[in-house]
Amino acid sequence: MNTQQIQKNIVNGVDVSKLTQTIDDLTQKPDLAQFHFCARNSWINGGQNRTTVNAFYGAGKTHVRSKPFVFTKDEPPVLLGTDQGANPVEYALTALAGCVTTTLVYYASAMNVKINKVETVLEGDIDMRGLLNIDENVKAGYKSIQVQFKIDSDASQETLQKLIEIARKHSPVANTITNATPINLSLA
């Protein structure tokens, strides 16, 4: 019996062997690449909402998390809230931060680029006249979002810049925000 352990190829905390196998599986069976996510929201009071995420469909089956994740959203007092949580546009920044960072790290791992640390600062400006319909020419969302990465790695600046571009191009949240994604609102 061989007692020698098979070493996993772990880069940046990512099992690259599993990542490669996943890519191969999805290439061979594209239907497994179809995922469906769901969020359930309840209004609490004023600007406060609570969203729960749990089950999702992907890789050909439904997955239920061991514990649902619950997010409380509210507005700061200057925006008539009680400050019980970050507001929805701040959650949009957090979703973008998480997604571009994860995308960057996964691609770095696949390229065998060691990342020691990633810090990201996201900022965006919103003119409240759009939300409040004071001026129809003012957009009701972010005018733009700036994302600044600070990456500790032995990789060249050129490689890190390439990873940032890959993250921008392949992050699902960045694509959802950047490209016109249809949103269909209806009564249940």
Rank of each mutant, 00 (worst) to 15 (best):
G98I: 01
D154P: 03
T22P: 03
V70C: 07
G85M: 13
K73T: 12
V100H: 08
L32N: 13
V121T: 14
S186F: 09
E165H: 10
S66D: 11
I134H: 08
K169Q: 14
E75P: 02
N9M: 05
A86M: 13
L79T: 01
C99N: 05
V70M: 06
Y106E: 14
I23C: 12
L96D: 02
D74C: 00
E123M: 08
F71E: 03
G85I: 09
G13Y: 11
M1W: 09
F35M: 01
G85W: 06
Q5P: 02
N12V: 05
T181H: 12
M111L: 04
T102F: 03
D74M: 13
N49I: 11
N175F: 00
I177E: 05
L93I: 05
S109R: 05
A110L: 13
R65G: 14
T51K: 10
T20A: 12
L104P: 02
D83S: 10
T176D: 10
A92M: 14
R50S: 15
T159W: 00
V147I: 14
R40P: 00
S66T: 07
L132I: 00
L80F: 03
Y106D: 09
Y107Q: 07
Y57C: 06
I44K: 15
I44A: 07
I126W: 07
L122V: 02
